[in-house]
Amino acid sequence: MNIIGPDFLVFGVDDMESCRQYLTDYGLKAAGDDRFLALDGTGVIIKPKDDPSLPAALETPTMLRKTVYGVADQATLEAIATELSSDREVKRLADGSIESVDDMGFALGFQVTVRTTLSLPAEIVNAPGSSHQRAVNDIGVQKVAAPEPRSLSHIVYFVPDFARAEAFYAERLGFITTDRFTGVGPFMRPAGTTDHHTVFFIQTPPHMLGCEHFTFHMAGPTEVMHAGRNMVEKGYQSFWGPGRHLFGSNWFWYFKSPLGCNMEYDADMDLHDDQWTAREGAPGADNSQAFLFKYTEKWSPMGPPPGAKPQ
């Protein structure tokens, strides 16, 4: 199954105007019809929670209503339709996509991917000994920046049975487990990407079924920091970060949102192919991150001018 990754996440929300403002401030571009897009055309779609075009709401408070995966071609789409039709309804929508559900009850969409191929440099760092450095006289950072999210990276679900979720995505859709937290759940990637994960499952009681967070890829750690600082300066509240995860190596910064889940920036995730052997670790703070920081306002060690009294 040549599934590439999530193209869109569709939310049925309580407060459209706050969500519009939030998603725009996060850095996505409003593209009409309440679609908010990253540079490669992937993104978030919001609708009022009672919009009749949305798949049915779950019984839990989650506002996530559908995960739309982009696939390589029409043949893949047909293969998925055939596979899922064996034991569940598969709808064909007017836009050419198909819609069904996974074994947890989450609505899934599949479409020939809308994502464009980006050609943009990653953040390049200078280090002694490295042959890959910024060009001489290229400046590494600006005082003010508005980094643009590049691509919808991954989604994390709370599920009541991670083993069943993992089996569905592996056996029915061809996802591969890259790493796992014991007793919590797997990180998985579909066959059409080398990203460490486009989905992670967290075992929870059934009343938590829903979206824990979702994430867009940025150019590098500097963009994660800059974008996160911009969010703090606009009055949004950090949930976790900034820091750097161990499984996946991705830099992270999570913010609470009016979409009923956290929204993250990430950068520099590991890439894996079929030669990779999945690791397993105990869950907990020590295995979740290499390091974790907390934002503080700008400060300088300059102190007062010579002879002046300390403030």
């Binding site: 309580d14 407060d15 706050s18 839990t60 989650t62 606009k234 509240q237 009016p258 009923g260 956290n262």
Partner: peptide, 21 residues
């Protein structure tokens, strides 16, 4: 809250936590 003072849902019916709803 997801931003300062955003403790209630849009209808003012419930207190909400914006981390996980």
């Amino acid at each position: 809250p997801w931003r300062k003072d955003a403790y209630l849902d849009a209808g003012g019916k419930d207190i909400i936590c914006s981390a996980h709803g």
